[in-house]
Protein backbone atom coordinates (compact mmCIF):
# COMPACT_ATOMS: atom_id res chain seq x y z
CA UNK A 1 0.00 0.00 0.00
CA UNK A 2 1.42 3.40 -0.96
CA UNK A 3 1.72 6.17 1.61
CA UNK A 4 -0.94 8.12 -0.23
CA UNK A 5 -3.34 5.16 -0.23
CA UNK A 6 -2.71 4.74 3.48
CA UNK A 7 -3.77 8.31 4.13
CA UNK A 8 -6.90 7.80 2.01
CA UNK A 9 -7.70 4.62 3.92
CA UNK A 10 -7.32 6.36 7.27
CA UNK A 11 -9.44 9.30 6.11
CA UNK A 12 -12.16 6.88 4.98
CA UNK A 13 -11.92 4.80 8.14
CA UNK A 14 -12.11 7.71 10.58
CA UNK A 15 -14.79 9.54 8.57
CA UNK A 16 -16.88 6.39 8.94
CA UNK A 17 -16.26 6.58 12.68
CA UNK A 18 -17.83 10.02 12.71
CA UNK A 19 -14.70 12.14 12.46
CA UNK A 20 -14.48 15.46 10.70
CA UNK A 21 -11.54 15.03 8.34
CA UNK A 22 -9.52 18.18 8.93
CA UNK A 23 -6.48 19.74 7.31
CA UNK A 24 -2.99 20.48 8.57
CA UNK A 25 -2.65 23.92 10.14
CA UNK A 26 -0.27 26.12 8.19
CA UNK A 27 2.12 27.23 10.92
CA UNK A 28 5.16 25.14 11.87
CA UNK A 29 4.62 22.96 14.91
CA UNK A 30 6.30 20.03 16.64
CA UNK A 31 3.25 17.77 16.78
CA UNK A 32 -0.28 17.35 15.50
CA UNK A 33 -1.52 17.94 19.04
CA UNK A 34 -0.75 21.64 18.55
CA UNK A 35 -3.16 22.01 15.63
CA UNK A 36 -6.07 24.17 16.88
CA UNK A 37 -8.38 21.29 15.89
CA UNK A 38 -6.90 19.41 18.85
CA UNK A 39 -5.59 22.09 21.21
CA UNK A 40 -8.82 24.06 21.47
CA UNK A 41 -11.31 21.27 20.88
CA UNK A 42 -9.91 19.08 23.64
CA UNK A 43 -10.88 21.79 26.13
CA UNK A 44 -14.29 22.02 27.76
CA UNK A 45 -17.22 19.59 27.80
CA UNK A 46 -18.12 19.59 24.09
CA UNK A 47 -17.80 16.32 22.17
CA UNK A 48 -15.39 16.22 19.25
CA UNK A 49 -14.09 13.79 16.66
CA UNK A 50 -11.48 14.70 14.12
CA UNK A 51 -8.80 13.10 11.92
CA UNK A 52 -6.09 14.88 9.91
CA UNK A 53 -2.51 14.65 8.65
CA UNK A 54 -0.04 17.01 10.29
CA UNK A 55 3.47 17.64 8.91
CA UNK A 56 5.36 18.01 12.22
CA UNK A 57 8.71 19.80 12.45
CA UNK A 58 11.32 18.72 14.94
CA UNK A 59 14.58 20.54 14.21
CA UNK A 60 16.56 18.51 16.76
CA UNK A 61 15.65 15.26 14.94
CA UNK A 62 16.93 16.54 11.59
CA UNK A 63 19.66 14.32 10.05
CA UNK A 64 20.47 15.91 6.66
CA UNK A 65 18.37 13.28 4.90
CA UNK A 66 21.03 10.70 5.71
CA UNK A 67 19.45 8.72 8.52
CA UNK A 68 16.96 6.05 7.40
CA UNK A 69 14.51 6.85 10.23
CA UNK A 70 15.05 10.37 11.54
CA UNK A 71 13.46 13.38 9.94
CA UNK A 72 13.17 17.14 10.39
CA UNK A 73 9.61 16.92 9.17
CA UNK A 74 7.54 13.79 9.58
CA UNK A 75 3.86 13.24 8.97
CA UNK A 76 1.55 12.33 11.79
CA UNK A 77 -1.97 11.07 11.30
CA UNK A 78 -3.81 12.53 14.23
CA UNK A 79 -7.19 11.41 15.60
CA UNK A 80 -9.16 12.82 18.53
CA UNK A 81 -12.13 10.94 20.00
CA UNK A 82 -13.87 12.91 22.74
CA UNK A 83 -15.34 11.52 24.87
CA UNK A 84 -13.18 8.46 24.54
CA UNK A 85 -15.28 5.36 23.76
CA UNK A 86 -14.66 2.35 26.04
CA UNK A 87 -13.70 0.18 23.06
CA UNK A 88 -11.29 2.72 21.59
CA UNK A 89 -8.47 0.17 21.30
CA UNK A 90 -10.63 -2.19 19.27
CA UNK A 91 -11.57 0.64 16.92
CA UNK A 92 -7.88 1.49 16.61
CA UNK A 93 -7.02 -2.13 15.78
CA UNK A 94 -9.60 -2.08 12.99
CA UNK A 95 -7.98 1.10 11.63
CA UNK A 96 -4.65 -0.75 11.50
CA UNK A 97 -6.28 -3.53 9.52
CA UNK A 98 -7.51 -0.86 7.09
CA UNK A 99 -3.87 0.05 6.31
CA UNK A 100 -2.66 -3.52 5.96
CA UNK A 101 -1.67 -4.36 9.53
CA UNK A 102 -3.96 -7.18 10.58
CA UNK A 103 -3.74 -7.94 14.30
CA UNK A 104 -4.30 -11.64 13.67
CA UNK A 105 -1.07 -11.67 11.64
CA UNK A 106 1.00 -9.13 13.59
CA UNK A 107 1.79 -8.89 17.29
CA UNK A 108 0.26 -5.71 18.71
CA UNK A 109 1.24 -4.41 22.15
CA UNK A 110 0.27 -1.44 24.23
CA UNK A 111 3.38 -0.43 26.18
CA UNK A 112 3.09 2.26 28.85
CA UNK A 113 4.34 5.61 27.63
CA UNK A 114 2.96 8.77 29.14
CA UNK A 115 2.96 12.02 27.24
CA UNK A 116 3.85 15.47 28.40
CA UNK A 117 4.29 18.75 26.59
CA UNK A 118 5.59 21.21 29.19
CA UNK A 119 5.60 24.14 26.78
CA UNK A 120 1.83 24.00 26.35
CA UNK A 121 1.08 22.80 29.90
CA UNK A 122 -0.36 19.52 28.65
CA UNK A 123 -0.07 15.90 29.72
CA UNK A 124 -1.80 12.55 29.61
CA UNK A 125 -1.36 8.84 30.27
CA UNK A 126 -1.15 6.26 27.54
CA UNK A 127 0.94 3.93 25.47
CA UNK A 128 3.25 3.60 22.57
CA UNK A 129 1.74 0.93 20.38
CA UNK A 130 4.14 -1.69 19.09
CA UNK A 131 3.65 -3.77 15.98
CA UNK A 132 6.11 -6.66 15.90
CA UNK A 133 8.42 -4.70 18.21
CA UNK A 134 8.19 -1.41 16.29
CA UNK A 135 6.61 1.71 17.73
CA UNK A 136 3.97 2.90 15.27
CA UNK A 137 1.49 4.95 17.30
CA UNK A 138 1.30 7.14 20.35
CA UNK A 139 -1.96 6.75 22.24
CA UNK A 140 -2.86 9.23 24.97
CA UNK A 141 -5.74 9.83 27.34
CA UNK A 142 -5.41 13.62 27.72
CA UNK A 143 -5.67 14.87 31.29
CA UNK A 144 -4.62 18.48 30.89
CA UNK A 145 -4.31 20.92 27.99
CA UNK A 146 -3.06 24.50 28.14
CA UNK A 147 -2.81 24.13 31.91
CA UNK A 148 -6.53 23.30 32.16
CA UNK A 149 -7.80 20.01 33.60
CA UNK A 150 -9.96 18.17 31.08
CA UNK A 151 -13.22 16.96 32.56
CA UNK A 152 -14.43 15.06 29.51
CA UNK A 153 -11.82 12.48 28.55
CA UNK A 154 -10.36 12.89 25.04
CA UNK A 155 -8.30 10.06 23.51
CA UNK A 156 -5.58 11.01 21.04
CA UNK A 157 -4.24 8.53 18.50
CA UNK A 158 -1.12 9.63 16.61
CA UNK A 159 0.20 7.38 13.84
CA UNK A 160 3.77 7.82 12.61
CA UNK A 161 2.98 7.55 8.90
CA UNK A 162 6.50 7.20 7.46
CA UNK A 163 7.41 4.34 9.82
CA UNK A 164 4.19 2.47 9.24
CA UNK A 165 4.52 2.87 5.49
CA UNK A 166 8.13 1.65 5.54
CA UNK A 167 7.07 -1.39 7.55
CA UNK A 168 4.05 -2.20 5.43
CA UNK A 169 6.11 -1.81 2.24
CA UNK A 170 9.03 -3.81 3.65
CA UNK A 171 11.67 -1.12 3.11
CA UNK A 172 14.24 -0.19 5.74
CA UNK A 173 14.73 3.45 4.71
CA UNK A 174 11.90 5.97 4.79
CA UNK A 175 13.30 7.68 1.70
CA UNK A 176 12.50 4.48 -0.21
CA UNK A 177 8.83 4.56 0.80
CA UNK A 178 6.53 4.64 -2.18
CA UNK A 179 4.26 7.67 -1.89
CA UNK A 180 2.36 6.78 -5.08
CA UNK A 181 3.36 4.50 -7.94
CA UNK A 182 6.60 5.85 -9.37
CA UNK A 183 7.17 8.49 -6.66
CA UNK A 184 9.40 7.86 -3.63
CA UNK A 185 9.47 9.76 -0.35
CA UNK A 186 13.06 10.74 -1.10
CA UNK A 187 12.01 12.27 -4.43
CA UNK A 188 9.78 14.60 -2.49
CA UNK A 189 11.68 15.34 0.66
CA UNK A 190 15.38 14.47 0.58
CA UNK A 191 16.59 17.89 -0.53
CA UNK A 192 14.12 19.56 1.86
CA UNK A 193 15.43 17.43 4.75
CA UNK A 194 19.01 18.36 3.89
CA UNK A 195 18.27 22.08 3.72
CA UNK A 196 16.25 22.24 6.92
CA UNK A 197 18.93 20.26 8.73
CA UNK A 198 21.67 22.60 7.54
CA UNK A 199 19.54 25.63 8.36
CA UNK A 200 18.44 24.39 11.82
CA UNK A 201 21.89 23.36 12.96
CA UNK A 202 24.20 25.78 11.21
CA UNK A 203 22.63 28.79 9.56
CA UNK A 204 19.49 30.00 11.31
CA UNK A 205 20.11 33.47 12.71
CA UNK A 206 20.03 33.24 16.48
CA UNK A 207 19.31 36.94 16.69
CA UNK A 208 16.37 36.65 14.30
CA UNK A 209 14.98 33.67 16.23
CA UNK A 210 15.28 35.46 19.54
CA UNK A 211 13.58 38.51 18.08
CA UNK A 212 10.85 36.28 16.66
CA UNK A 213 10.37 34.60 20.00
CA UNK A 214 10.06 37.89 21.84
CA UNK A 215 7.94 39.54 19.15
CA UNK A 216 5.55 36.58 19.02
CA UNK A 217 5.33 36.57 22.78
CA UNK A 218 4.39 40.24 22.89
CA UNK A 219 1.92 39.82 20.05
CA UNK A 220 0.30 36.79 21.69
CA UNK A 221 -0.13 38.76 24.86
CA UNK A 222 -1.61 41.72 22.99
CA UNK A 223 -4.06 39.58 21.04
CA UNK A 224 -5.08 37.75 24.20
CA UNK A 225 -5.72 41.05 25.92
CA UNK A 226 -8.27 41.69 23.16
CA UNK A 227 -9.80 38.24 23.73
CA UNK A 228 -8.61 37.07 20.28
CA UNK A 229 -7.45 33.63 21.25
CA UNK A 230 -7.16 32.07 17.78
CA UNK A 231 -4.97 34.98 16.70
CA UNK A 232 -2.94 34.79 19.91
CA UNK A 233 -2.48 31.04 19.52
CA UNK A 234 -0.81 31.48 16.10
CA UNK A 235 1.86 33.48 17.89
CA UNK A 236 2.20 30.84 20.59
CA UNK A 237 2.96 28.34 17.80
CA UNK A 238 5.58 30.73 16.40
CA UNK A 239 7.18 31.04 19.83
CA UNK A 240 7.31 27.27 20.11
CA UNK A 241 8.93 26.76 16.70
CA UNK A 242 11.46 29.56 17.32
CA UNK A 243 12.34 27.88 20.61
CA UNK A 244 12.80 24.49 18.91
CA UNK A 245 15.12 26.06 16.33
CA UNK A 246 17.10 27.94 18.97
CA UNK A 247 17.58 24.69 20.82
CA UNK A 248 18.74 22.80 17.72
CA UNK A 249 21.07 25.71 17.02
CA UNK A 250 22.59 25.20 20.47
CA UNK A 251 21.64 28.74 21.47
CA UNK A 252 19.81 27.84 24.67
CA UNK A 253 21.84 27.03 27.77
CA UNK A 254 20.32 24.33 29.95
CA UNK A 255 19.73 26.92 32.67
CA UNK A 256 17.64 29.10 30.33
CA UNK A 257 15.57 26.25 28.97
CA UNK A 258 13.02 26.16 31.78
CA UNK A 259 12.48 29.91 31.54
CA UNK A 260 11.80 29.72 27.77
CA UNK A 261 9.35 26.87 28.24
CA UNK A 262 7.64 28.76 31.05
CA UNK A 263 7.11 31.77 28.79
CA UNK A 264 5.44 29.64 26.10
CA UNK A 265 3.33 27.89 28.73
CA UNK A 266 2.08 31.18 30.18
CA UNK A 267 0.82 32.33 26.79
CA UNK A 268 -0.68 28.90 26.01
CA UNK A 269 -2.57 28.90 29.28
CA UNK A 270 -3.90 32.36 28.55
CA UNK A 271 -5.39 31.34 25.19
CA UNK A 272 -6.77 28.10 26.62
CA UNK A 273 -8.59 30.00 29.36
CA UNK A 274 -9.97 32.51 26.85
CA UNK A 275 -11.22 29.67 24.67
CA UNK A 276 -13.05 27.92 27.50
CA UNK A 277 -14.63 31.18 28.64
CA UNK A 278 -15.77 31.95 25.10
CA UNK A 279 -17.27 28.50 24.50
CA UNK A 280 -19.10 28.79 27.79
CA UNK A 281 -20.45 32.20 26.77
CA UNK A 282 -21.73 30.58 23.59
CA UNK A 283 -23.41 27.87 25.66
CA UNK A 284 -21.04 25.11 24.46
CA UNK A 285 -22.75 24.87 21.04
CA UNK A 286 -21.60 21.34 20.18
CA UNK A 287 -22.66 19.84 23.48
CA UNK A 288 -25.36 17.27 23.00
CA UNK A 289 -25.05 17.42 19.23
CA UNK A 290 -24.78 13.95 17.80
CA UNK A 291 -23.18 13.21 14.48
CA UNK A 292 -22.25 9.59 14.91
CA UNK A 293 -20.74 10.34 18.27
CA UNK A 294 -21.84 8.33 21.24
Amino acid sequence: MTLQEMIFALHRFWADEGCYIGQPYDIEKGAGTMNPLTFFRALGPEPWRVGYVEPSRRPADARFGENPNRLYQHHQYQVILKPCPANVQDIYLRSLAAIGLDATVHDVRFVEDNWENPSTGSWGLGWEVWIDGMEVTQFTYFQQMGGIELLVLPAEITYGLERIAAYVQGVSNVFDVEVMPGLKYGDLFRRQEYEHSAYSFNHASVEYLQTTFQGSEAEAERASAEGLYFAAYDHVLRMSHAFNLLEARGAIAPAQRTAYIGRIRDRAREVAELCVADRERQGFPLEGRVLRWS
Binding site: A103, T104, V105, H106, D107, V108, R109, D132, G133
Partner: peptide, 9 residues
Protein backbone atom coordinates in the same frame (compact mmCIF):
# COMPACT_ATOMS: atom_id res chain seq x y z
CA UNK B 1 4.91 -12.52 21.28
CA UNK B 2 1.32 -12.20 22.44
CA UNK B 3 -0.26 -13.07 19.10
CA UNK B 4 0.21 -12.87 15.35
CA UNK B 5 1.93 -15.36 13.07
CA UNK B 6 5.34 -16.41 14.29
CA UNK B 7 7.27 -15.93 11.05
CA UNK B 8 5.76 -12.50 10.38
CA UNK B 9 6.36 -11.34 13.96
Amino acid sequence: RNGGQEDVV
